[in-house]
Structure formats: structure tokens, C-alpha cells
């Protein structure tokens, strides 16, 4: 829960983001919600985005984080990415594509018994890494997988 609270604080520091979200009539669940981290999503570099979002860009590659994505994307606009974190107390999973104009793509905060698992589809404009950053017990762990994005055609 600390993670969610910290994000709220961060959100409120980022020029009125929380206010905008609340004003837009968000369906607020019984627990306090984190605001959309506008500043982090606006960062042009991965390090910048992670520092803003997670408070640090210090992380070690970990075998406990696995990232599943295709070697070659069938469609750069729809690249399936699945992240599994097998360590205990996973607070969040963040997915980034450093070669994208906005590297930070998605972040998932977990609570109430959620597993360290998230699967979604992301856009990749060109070949490059997909990076998964897992926050567990306050520490950051990561894994990366290279995905080739081709122009396609001419096969057979």
C-alpha cells in the first residue's frame, strides 16, 4: 500500500494532476487511487521516467523477472508483452520501450493479493528492448528482451 500512497503524493506534486483526475469524475474505489503519473509518462528517457515514477532508476537484472515477447513482432503496433515476477511482495510492474518517443508505456500497481503478473500489448515504432521493472519490498528488479520490428513482406 505504501507504493500507492507514494504515487498519490507524487501525483499531487505534479502540477494539479490529481485535481484534474478527480474533477473529471473518476470512479473512486473505496481505497484511495493513485493519480495518472503525467510527469513520468512525459519523460523522453527511460532513466528519467523511472526516477520520476519509482523514485529511482537503480535496478539490477533479476532471474526472478521473466518477460515474454516475440523475437520478431508480427505487428509493431501490437506487441504482446507478458511479465512474471516470481519474488515475494511485488508492489508494481512497469513496462517500458526505450526506443519509443515516450519510453514509459504502462505501470501496474498491485494490492490485495495480486500476483506479480501483467500481460498487455504495446506499440513499438522500431526494433529495440522491452524492459520490465518490478518493484518488490521497496527494491527494483528488471529484465529485458529485444524485439525486432520489421517492415515485412517479401517472404516465401
Amino acid at each position: 500500500m505504501n507504493n500507492l500512497r507514494r504515487l498519490i503524493l507524487k501525483g499531487s506534486m505534479a502540477a494539479g494532476t490529481l485535481g484534474v483526475a478527480a474533477g473529471a469524475g473518476l470512479l473512486v474505489p473505496s481505497q484511495a487511487l493513485a493519480a495518472w503519473p503525467k510527469e513520468a509518462f512525459g519523460q523522453k528517457t527511460l532513466d528519467g521516467a523511472l526516477s520520476v515514477l519509482l523514485g529511482s532508476d537503480e535496478m539490477g537484472e533479476s532471474a526472478d523477472v521473466s518477460i515474454k515477447a516475440p523475437e520478431i513482432a508480427e505487428n509493431g503496433a501490437v506487441v504482446p508483452v507478458t511479465v512474471t515476477a516470481s519474488m515475494a511482495n511485488v508492489e508494481s510492474i512497469t513496462i517500458a520501450a526505450p526506443n519509443n518517443p515516450a519510453p514509459l508505456v504502462a505501470s501496474f500497481d498491485f494490492a490485495s493479493g495480486a500476483h506479480g503478473y501483467a500481460s498487455t500489448r504495446i506499440k513499438m515504432g522500431k526494433s529495440g528492448d522491452v524492459i520490465a521493472i518490478v518493484k518488490a519490498d521497496g527494491k527494483l528488479y528488471s529484465a529485458r528482451k529485444n524485439v525486432k520490428v520489421t517492415i515485412g513482406g517479401c517472404g516465401g
Binding site: L33, T120, I122
Partner: peptide, 30 residues
């Protein structure tokens, strides 16, 4: 933002950029 609640408790709260694909797919476990 995508929020999942079960029995009034929040389980998952996702924050996305426009880098998530059109007609988004999402899977998680609890």
C-alpha cells in the same frame, strides 16, 4: 487508468500511456 476491484477492495491499478496498443488487452492474477 484501469482499476480492478473485488469485494470493494482494489486489486490492481494500471496507469497507461498512449504506447499501449489500440483496443487494449490486459491480464492479471490475484
Amino acid at each position: 487508468e484501469v482499476v480492478c476491484e473485488v469485494g470493494g477492495n482494489m486489486v490492481m491499478n494500471a496507469h497507461w500511456s498512449g504506447g499501449v496498443s489500440k483496443n487494449p488487452y490486459l491480464s492479471f492474477k490475484f
